Simulated scan of single mutants.
Amino acid sequence: MDISQFSERINQTLSTLQYGQTPDELYAPIRYMMELGGKRVRPLLTLLGAYLFHDDVEKAVMPAIGVEVFHNFTLMHDDIMDNAPLRRGQETVHEKWNTSTAILSGDVMLVRAYEFFLGIEPQKLPVALKLFSTCAAQVCEGQQLDMNFEARQDVQIDEYLNMIRLKTAVLLGFSLELGALLNNAAPEDARHLKEFGINMGIAFQLRDDLLDVYGDQAKFGKRVGGDIVSDKKTYLLLNALERANATQQKELRKWQGLGQNGQEKQKVEAVKAIYDELDIQGTTHSQINHYFQKALHHLNEVNALNSKKELLRQLAIQLIERDS
């Protein structure tokens, strides 16, 4: 087996899903969102987590789809909160329809996500739903912290790393833990897989922060420099503020709150210039590698065939080195 076969199984299943028909204004945005594509990392992790402990992963397919639908629900609502114009290079749902429709369609996606878990074996279902509910709440906690940071000027790097652990990384950890649970992994193996996913998720988000500033617009799928324009407290900005000299600090603070009235390009260039002076790109690469190595440590501790674990290692490398 290779990763492409698992991806094909996920995409095949997604192509057959029915979320509902009437009213079309409610369900068309869901179909649109799910058809935008994406890497399908989370359902892939669920299948790979199951595959570590048994060759047959069929029982994990629909729960994996539930994870993906939940993830896209969070993206739909995040885009509203961030007032984001693009998602995967296309109009966001709230831009294409309207905010109220995007909220309601997202709510239905959350409901459907739970439904996709209902085929889990009865003795495992309560555990799976409890783990999922805990994870889902943590994702919301992370999003709230992210919004809280918008109004604060004293956010610390450790706080930021905890926020992305909740908002992004715990769902990757849960995806693997779910697959392990469904194919009867030992609790300690499931724990190591979860930690592998969480550390990989933090590295993944740090890579996303980096691409937002240094990525190729055509490949990235979102507006490059968007985090700078919107004053997002990313690892890059917080690291720059911590290490900047007085002149650089003054320049960074000057741009806070500006750049929304035709100054976007100027602001991105000014902030990026300071990042370059401080080698923020290199520092971020080092932090990404730190979490990548922590992830590999936990993967090495999992009691499974090395040939199967190699698939997860390959996927982790793809995610950390991606340019989109």
Rank of each mutant, 00 (worst) to 15 (best):
A64W: 08
P63M: 10
A316R: 01
G197R: 03
N300I: 00
A50C: 03
G257F: 05
Q12L: 13
L17K: 09
H77S: 10
P126H: 13
H77K: 06
A169M: 13
P43V: 15
L182E: 05
F204R: 08
V127L: 15
K294W: 00
G49P: 08
L237M: 15
I228L: 04
S307Q: 12
S15T: 06
A180L: 09
F220R: 09
V127D: 13
N306Q: 07
I120Y: 13
I288C: 14
N199K: 13
G119S: 14
I288Q: 13
N303S: 11
Y291R: 03
Q293W: 12
I317E: 15
V170D: 07
L176T: 00
E25L: 15
Q263V: 04
G215N: 07
I103T: 12
L75W: 03
L86R: 11
D216W: 00
V139H: 07
T46L: 01
T13I: 12
A102Y: 10
W97F: 15
A180K: 11
Q143I: 04
D24H: 15
A50K: 05
I65K: 00
E195K: 12
R152Q: 10
H94A: 11
V213Q: 01
Y51I: 00
G197S: 08
W255G: 03
D208P: 06
H94F: 15
P187D: 06
E264K: 02
L14D: 04
P43H: 10
M81Y: 06
L17R: 08
M33C: 11
H54M: 02
D212Y: 08
P85C: 09
L75Y: 06
L258G: 10
I274E: 03
H71M: 07
D2S: 10
K265R: 06
Q138T: 12
K39D: 00
I30V: 12
M1V: 15
E8C: 04
N183L: 04
L305N: 11
K59R: 11
Q5H: 03
N83M: 14
H297A: 06
H77V: 09
P43Q: 13
A244M: 01
I274A: 07
L172W: 01
R207S: 09
Q266H: 01
D158V: 08
Q260W: 07
D24Y: 15
A295D: 04
Q205S: 13
Y19S: 07
